[in-house]
Structure formats: C-alpha cells, structure tokens
C-alpha cells in the first residue's frame, strides 16, 4: 500500500507492458538468442500488429505473453500484475488450425465456458452470440473436418472471444489461407474489433495485412529480434487497400523491410 501513485499512472496508460524481454533457447549445448530486449506497451482496446520476417521469433514472443513459454529475462505486466503460467486473462488464436476435431463447432466455442463452470443455458447463449458474430450460426452442428480453413479460423476467433479475455493474441491466424479469404477475414476482424473493443495483438509477416489492421505496427528485426521501428497508423477505418495513403505507408515499410532483411 506504500506508493499507490506510481502504479496507478501505469495502469491507466497501458494494459500490457513488456520490459526488456529476452529469450534464449538452449538446445543440447547450443544457445540461440531469439528475443533481444523487447519493449512493448499496449493500451486498452488498441489494435497492434507485430510485423517481422519468418523465423524472427514472433511466435516465441506471443507464447511468452500467453505464459506458454518461459522468458530468460525481463518482466511482463498485465493490468499491473505479473502474468501466470498460461494466463487466463488472455485469449489466443494459433497459427495452425487448433479446433478440437471431436467437438462440433458449437461445442468448440463452449469449451472454455465449460472449463469455467458456466451454466449450460448461459453457455448456449454466449456461444450463439459469438457464432452469430463470426457468421457461422448455420454450421454450429458441423464438425471441424467439414469446414474450410477460413471457417475454422473464424471458429477459433469465436472460441477465444467466448471466454471474454481482456486481450486477444493472434498468431498469423490467416497465414494459411488464400488471398481472397484472407481479405474477407481481415475486414470481418476489424468489424468484430469495433464491436467488442477488445485489445488485439496480431502477428503477421504480411505488410499489407499489418497496415490494413493495426493502429500501431511494431517492426521486428531478423533473429535475434529487436524492436526496429514503431509506426503509428492513423488511416481511418475501414481502410482501403487501393488508396494512395495506404500504398504510401506500404511502400515506406516495404523499403524499410528490404533494407532490414538484406
């Protein structure tokens, strides 16, 4: 109870704070430095994209925030509190398809609610609401194997949101989809974000995707990853990929990336 003021300023400013996060993987006797002093602050309801070349440590960073992976040094705060092992205040959508194949779409969405011990009636209400939001109400009794890739990831988003996390982590969720489906899902995600006002940290290696989605783009270097540049993206939503402003930013980042990965 000593110094309440010092904490409260931070709590108002940032929902998530990463301070000097470093991560070294040790395999046999070899050490691999993946993350090198990453600092990142995210405000409530913000949409942040982390953009970096393949293999630079984006998934590692997200897994660390989620509490699925240990970090070597630094600290992470979520709403002023340390994160626990597998943080229950966060939701996550994985890079690979991760639906439970033995559960129907509906049962996939209620999984987290069942674990929380939410009453059956309430579960149904919540699941129906989120299935409606991702436009999959008609498929609620189907099994994941009957769905296309894009539909599977929409279910994964609904499943993550159903437990009402404070912040949603998304690891290249549209990476495995074709360009058209990808475009549709990006538009839907922005709409969904507008409706739910959830904080989103979205990982991608696709420059256009980052500009289309994010208010702030964090550019990571090649491995070992450092934060190279932070871009404030003030383009109004919904964004137009064909507009001049959009392509100006795109060109800027593309040039920067080219130098970075050369």
């Amino acid at each position: 109870m000593a110094k309440p003021y010092q904490y409260s300023t931070n709590m108002i400013m940032y929902q998530l704070e990463l301070k000097n996060i470093s991560k070294t993987y040790k395999r046999n006797s070899k050490k691999l430095l993946v993350l090198d002093n990453i600092n990142l602050n995210v405000k409530k309801s913000e949409f942040v994209c982390i953009l970096g070349p393949s293999g630079c440590g984006k998934t590692t960073l997200l897994r660390i925030i989620m509490g699925l992976e240990q970090f070597s040094s630094g600290s992470i705060n979520l709403d002023g509190k340390n994160i626990e092992e597998v943080e229950s205040r966060l939701g996550m959508v994985f890079q690979e398809f991760s639906l439970f194949p033995w559960r129907t779409i509906f049962e996939n969405v209620t999984f987290g609610l069942e674990m929380k011990g939410v009453k059956k009636q309430e579960q149904t209400k919540i699941a129906e609401k989120y299935l409606e939001l991702v436009d999959l109400s008609d498929f609620k009794d189907h099994y994941p194997s009957e769905l296309s890739g894009g539909m599977k990831q929409r279910v994964a988003v609904a499943r993550a949101l159903a437990v009402n996390p404070e912040l949603l982590l998304m690891d290249e969720p549209f990476g495995a989809l074709d360009a058209q489906t990808r475009n549709t899902l990006q538009t839907e995600l922005i709409k969904l974000w507008g409706k739910t006002e959830k904080t989103v940290i979205f990982i991608t290696h696709n420059i256009e995707e980052a500009i289309f989605l994010a208010q702030r783009i964090i550019i990571l270097s090649k491995i070992p990853s450092r934060v190279e540049r932070i871009i404030e993206n003030k383009l109004p939503y919904p964004r137009d990929k064909l507009s001049g402003d959009f392509n100006e930013i795109k060109l800027d980042i593309t040039r920067y990336f080219y130098k970075l990965t050369k």
Partner: peptide, 21 residues
C-alpha cells in the same frame, strides 16, 4: 497444439486435460 489450445481456454490440470483432450 490441441493440449495448448485447451490450456489457453482454462483447461490446465492434468486430470482435466486427460479427460477433455
């Protein structure tokens, strides 16, 4: 991946992971 997906959704104990995943 499925085990981690379950953990992220709050299914963390061994007994629950075995039963539900």
């Amino acid at each position: 991946l499925l085990v981690e997906a379950a953990k992220v959704l709050g299914c963390k104990k061994n007994k629950d992971l075995i039963r539900h995943v």
